[in-house]
């Protein structure tokens, strides 16, 4: 049995761990509200753009002359997996869930004889993928110097992706991130982003003849990179909200576990203390009787 001093030390160390997890939980709760508001605010733009893209793509037919971002390169040999992670830990299985989804996809693609490359956003998840696929990391996008990934980051990522795509470095890109369902549920999601999957066309009004300036195809070509940016931005926002949600849940669990542990240790401590007192008393009584 551990000595009283040791037990006291352990109780104190668990208590200070609990303080940290509790603080992180409250921080995550506050940040979650902010992240949700940001995701909410981004919705009108994404929605409108998707509507416009839908009505445009319903008007033109995809041919070889269509922009490459829409029509594809004509092959699907090289797949790029864009994996969006967070920069900070303390959020439970959030990052490993995303990485696991990406790895499952990579294994599936490699089994089909395709080449797989990785594009990593965020610091977490690098280590795992670097260990598994050391030579297949195309780029690691650093977000450690910004507090919240915003539209500027999405824009930079999209620009780099388009440049790589146009240089013929890959044929298909998939995006991996975590969709925010609720503070308790985050869903690792994969989504094809290049070639751009045409959004479902909204119901076309037959009587309204819309004029285009310049023509439909040029507008579509101009909008495709923007649509990509919006999708990436949406994914980053969902990821941010998911991270805080996961962090909140994980830290709540940790705080509760620490509480249970403290209770158990306190009981052991008290028992040990009583046992020590009893032993002392027995010794004194035995001594007195011997006289």
């Amino acid at each position: 049995m551990a000595s009283l001093k040791e037990l006291k030390g352990r109780i104190n160390s668990v208590k200070s761990t609990q303080k940290i997890t509790k603080a992180k939980q409250m921080v995550a709760a506050a940040k979650l509200r902010k992240a949700q508001a940001a995701a909410e605010a981004a919705r009108p733009y994404a929605q409108r753009l998707a509507e416009v893209m839908g009505s445009l793509s319903s008007k033109i037919t995809v041919s070889e002359n269509s922009p490459k971002l829409l029509a594809g390169t004509g092959s699907d040999q090289v797949h790029l997996l864009v994996v969006a992670n967070s920069d900070k830990g303390l959020c439970g299985a959030f990052n490993s869930n995303i990485v696991r989804a990406a790895r499952a996809k990579a294994i599936e693609l490699e089994a089909a004889g395709k080449t797989v490359l990785f594009y990593l956003i965020g610091r977490k998840g690098r280590a795992v993928i670097r260990r598994e696929y050391p030579k297949q990391i195309a780029h690691m996008f650093d977000t450690t110097d910004v507090r919240e990934p915003g539209f500027n980051e999405a824009e930079r990522v999209a620009d780099e992706l388009v440049a790589m795509y146009e240089a013929g470095k890959f044929d298909v890109a998939h995006l991996f991130y975590s969709k925010f369902r609720s503070a308790l549920v985050q869903e690792p999601t994969s989504q094809q982003i290049i070639p751009v999957p045409a959004p479902k066309a909204a119901a076309v009004q037959a009587d309204a003849v819309t004029e285009y300036e310049p023509d439909e195809e040029e507008i579509l070509a101009a909008l495709l990179p923007r649509y990509l940016k919006t999708q990436l931005f949406g994914a980053l926002l969902e990821n941010a909200a998911s991270e805080q949600g996961a962090s909140m849940t994980a830290m709540d669990n940790a705080t509760r576990n620490a509480g249970d542990l403290i209770k158990k240790l306190t009981i052991v401590y008290n028992r040990t203390r009583q046992a020590a007192i009893t032993t002392e008393l027995v010794e004194i009584i035995a001594g007195a009787e011997a006289l």
Binding site: L56, E211, Y212, E213
Partner: peptide
């Protein structure tokens, strides 16, 4: 009352 129109 402008006619339906799209432009970059």
């Amino acid at each position: 009352g402008h006619a339906p129109f799209m432009s970059t």
